[in-house]
């Protein structure tokens, strides 16, 4: 019986809809700002919201949920964080961009970070409903590094 839990995977056997990937580029700029561009497949996030919250985001249409930005930001805040020197930083949400090739870009920012001694990131975006989800994080700038998160590895300390 317990094994059957895992059959949730069945939900997403689509032949063309094979994404399950987000890509986050984090730039620690020379001006000491943290600039983040997070790329989702719009369809994935919509599907996720339908399954998890019974909400239809309808991104990029006039019928788009009025509070879709705050819902998305709240979702991201619960499933993604950056810890600098052991304390979580507060990100601000600049906005989003929905494109016709299904890419959904989210722009986040943190102004003036302090000296970087240690860096820890949590990223379990979409993992709850897509067990095959992979979340790529690229660090840009002097830190140049990257890591791929998945449902088993959701927290990573960068060295």
């Amino acid at each position: 019986m317990i094994n059957s839990f895992l059959s949730i995977y069945l939900l997403f056997n689509f032949a063309i809809h094979e994404h399950y990937t987000t890509i986050t580029n984090i730039n620690f700029s020379p001006e000491k700002n943290i600039e983040i561009v997070m790329e989702f497949t719009a369809h994935d996030l919509e599907y996720y919201f339908e399954k998890e919250y019974h909400k239809e985001l309808k991104l990029g249409s006039i019928n788009e949920l009025k509070d879709s930005d705050s819902l998305i930001f709240e979702y991201i805040s619960n499933h993604f964080y950056i810890k600098l020197n052991n304390s979580k930083i507060t990100l601000s949400y600049l906005g989003k961009e929905v494109n016709n090739d299904e890419s959904l870009l989210i722009y986040l920012e943190k102004k003036s970070f302090k000296n970087l001694k240690s860096l820890e990131i949590l990223n379990d975006l979409l993992c709850k409903h897509f067990p095959n989800q992979q979340n790529i994080v690229h660090l840009e700038g002097n830190l140049k590094n990257s890591f791929i998160f998945n449902s088993k590895e959701t927290i990573h300390k960068f060295k």
Partner: peptide
């Protein structure tokens, strides 16, 4: 395919369990 699929229990929720 149910048996070999891996993943933590953390990734489950009540709705998905009901569906399954």
């Amino acid at each position: 395919s149910f048996i070999i699929r891996t993943g933590g229990i953390k990734s489950m929720n009540t709705r998905s369990i009901k569906q399954l």
